[in-house]
């Protein structure tokens, strides 16, 4: 009797609409941030027509975001190639012909590790760079200043970065692949006592001309994702230095996650 009354009064006291309010609020928040993002992408697409603004700036961004990222991409893939070759030979103990090391290094490099590792490294380097730069420009009102001088800030700041990333990331991945395979090759010859011909034979064994297309499609989508997310976060930075920090972290985390999601997505869509 007493217990029931206790429960009753507890329920009465409790605001029953609260859980619904929380769920509803979360959904609305999600929708509005999705809406905000789609508006950003819409603005981005519309700004593409403003060639005179972004045209001259794109090369500079290609240099900054692309060419200057070559060392990190190459460093990464060089070691990846070595490790791949060693681990392949370790896995294939005795039973499997050693030239399969060539097949594994080449295939893994082109299909997976080249694009994904480069993508992850660049989401750190490029994504963070963009988010921090645009975030600082936002909080110090430089973006507002651009607008007051009749520049479309999306065309001036975002489009060159997005284009540069989308063009340069696949190219970086190609160089990464070449260096990764080459370092795997050299490792095979010097550490694993394989002949050059064996490695080449293995490399060609399972090669399909679609592999490179797949690799390029994948890395292009990575480049697009990294730069769009970096720009979006930077553009919507709030608050001061702390806000810039938050935007940068978000850009990197989201880009890394999206790269892995896209990786699975392309595998499902293109490799089935």
């Amino acid at each position: 009797m007493l217990a029931r009354r206790g429960v009753r009064s507890y329920l009465d006291r409790m605001n029953l609409s609260l859980p619904f309010a929380i769920v509803g609020g979360a959904i609305l928040g999600l929708l509005s941030s999705f809406g905000q993002f789609s508006r950003f992408v819409g603005d981005l697409i519309r700004a593409l027509t403003d060639v005179r603004t972004w045209g001259p700036l794109t090369v500079g961004q290609m240099r900054r975001l692309g060419v200057d990222s070559l060392p990190i991409a190459l460093f990464l893939s060089c070691f990846t190639g070595i490790v791949l070759a060693l681990q392949a030979s370790y896995t294939f103990t005795g039973a499997i012909p050693l030239y399969f090391v060539g097949a594994l290094v080449t295939k893994t490099m082109i299909l997976e590790l080249g694009p994904v590792l480069t993508g992850l490294a660049l989401s750190g380097r490029v994504g963070a760079n963009i988010a921090a730069e645009l975030g600082t420009m936002r909080v110090s009102e430089q973006i507002d200043a651009l607008e007051t001088m009749a520049y479309n800030p999306i065309a001036y700041l975002v489009v060159p970065r997005v284009l540069a990333g989308t063009i340069m990331v696949p190219l970086l991945v190609i160089f990464s692949n070449v260096l990764g395979i080459a370092s795997g090759w050299i490792t095979s010859m010097n550490v694993l006592d394989m002949t050059s011909a064996q490695f080449v034979r293995g490399s060609r064994l399972f090669y399909d001309s679609f592999d490179i297309v797949y690799c390029i499609i994948k890395s292009t989508s990575f480049g697009l994702t990294i730069t769009v997310l970096g720009c979006y976060q930077g553009f919507n930075t709030r608050g001061g230095a702390e806000g810039v920090g938050i935007a940068t972290t978000r850009a990197v985390v989201l880009a890394s996650m999206m790269i892995l999601v896209l990786d699975a997505f392309w595998a499902l869509v293109l490799l089935q």
Partner: peptide, 28 residues
Amino acid sequence: FKLRLDMGYVFQFAALFDSMTIGENIAM
């Protein structure tokens, strides 16, 4: 945009583009 070119805005904290020199800022 056309109207904005008829307006000059002096920001409270200058809001200079810090990737450019002062000359380039003004030339924008």
